[in-house]
């Protein structure tokens, strides 16, 4: 009987201790500014490929999930871009604005050598437009889509001197979804009149291929962290005999309030490592 009671007490202590040691799951907030160059082709507007500057702002909130904090992480991200392009002859300008929201979950696996790999899915909603200032009845190409994405990342935690760092490559590829495209020669006047046939399309890699890749280095200074990176963003669609292609190469600089917790030796369950 004594042995049984002893075992019961030990078990309870063990459970109580394990609860006491459950790590907090902070939200890693990342706020970034992006600047770069890119090209844009929308054959609804012009057969020519424009090129120019792209500026963006993005934010990302990542957290270990409450259900399986060691293996599941949640992520919400938002991004906005402003585009300013010129045609090859520099006689016309095209401006663009777009925004995107994604929410997703990723399975993660911590590997030896401070490596972490994640893979998962997300839902994303994109909306924006390209505006070609010289066009009359076809001045705007609307960019709008909603899709299920595949995403993955590989990160490596290391230090240089006293600064802990995380080198990561994050990739997101929209797969199935829907997107908007006007008919080949349809004006927005006709859409305004009510002819909305054939404007929404099921999207998959065969008619809409996009890739968003961010290679970044996060430097943990303790109370705050910094992110430097390079983003390659490619979006394309093909519908109603209309081609749309946007390539963007951006330099990324960001801030992570409260840091990554590595330098502070915080006992946390970070989604990043």
């Amino acid at each position: 009987m004594k042995k049984f009671l002893l075992a019961l007490v030990l078990t309870m202590i063990s459970i109580a201790t394990s609860h006491a040691e459950e790590l907090s799951r902070p939200v890693v907030q990342e706020y970034r500014l992006e600047a770069g160059r890119g090209t844009a082709l929308s054959t609804y507007l012009s057969p020519l490929t424009y090129d120019g500057k792209v500026f963006g702002a993005s934010a990302q909130w990542t957290k270990a999930s409450p259900w399986a904090p060691e293996t599941l992480i949640m992520q919400f991200a938002a991004k906005a871009n402003m585009r300013d392009y010129l045609n090859p002859a520099r006689t016309a300008s095209m401006i663009g604005i777009d925004g995107m929201f994604t929410w997703g979950m990723q399975w993660r696996r911590r590997l030896p050598c401070s490596l972490q790999v994640t893979a998962g899915g997300s839902i994303d909603v994109d909306a924006g437009c390209l505006y070609l200032t010289r066009n009359g009845n076809n001045p705007v190409s609307v960019l709008a889509s909603a899709s299920l994405d595949i995403n993955a990342s590989l990160s490596w935690r290391f230090s240089i001197g006293k600064i802990p760092m995380i080198l990561a490559n994050e990739i997101r590829i929209p797969s199935l979804g829907c997107f908007f495209s006007p008919q080949y020669g349809e004006t927005y006047y006709e859409i305004w009149l009510g002819n909305r046939e054939g404007l929404a399309h099921c999207g998959w890699w065969g008619n809409r291929f996009c890739i968003d890749n961010l290679l970044s280095l996060r430097l943990d200074f303790g109370r705050t962290a910094m992110q430097l990176g390079y983003r390659y963003d490619y979006r394309s669609s093909w519908a109603n005999s209309l081609d749309t292609r946007l390539h963007t190469h951006s330099f990324v600089i960001g801030i992570i309030p409260h840091g990554l917790g590595i330098k502070r030796r915080a006992r946390i369950n970070s989604p990043l490592y």
Binding site: N87, A89, N135, G136, N137, N138, G185, E186, Y189
Partner: peptide, 19 residues
């Protein structure tokens, strides 16, 4: 015909009846 616009590689624009 409602006109559409487009352009040439040298930057000239062209307008034509489309709808």
């Amino acid at each position: 015909g409602l006109p559409f616009s487009s352009e040439l590689p040298n930057g000239w624009s062209v307008r034509f009846s489309s709808c």
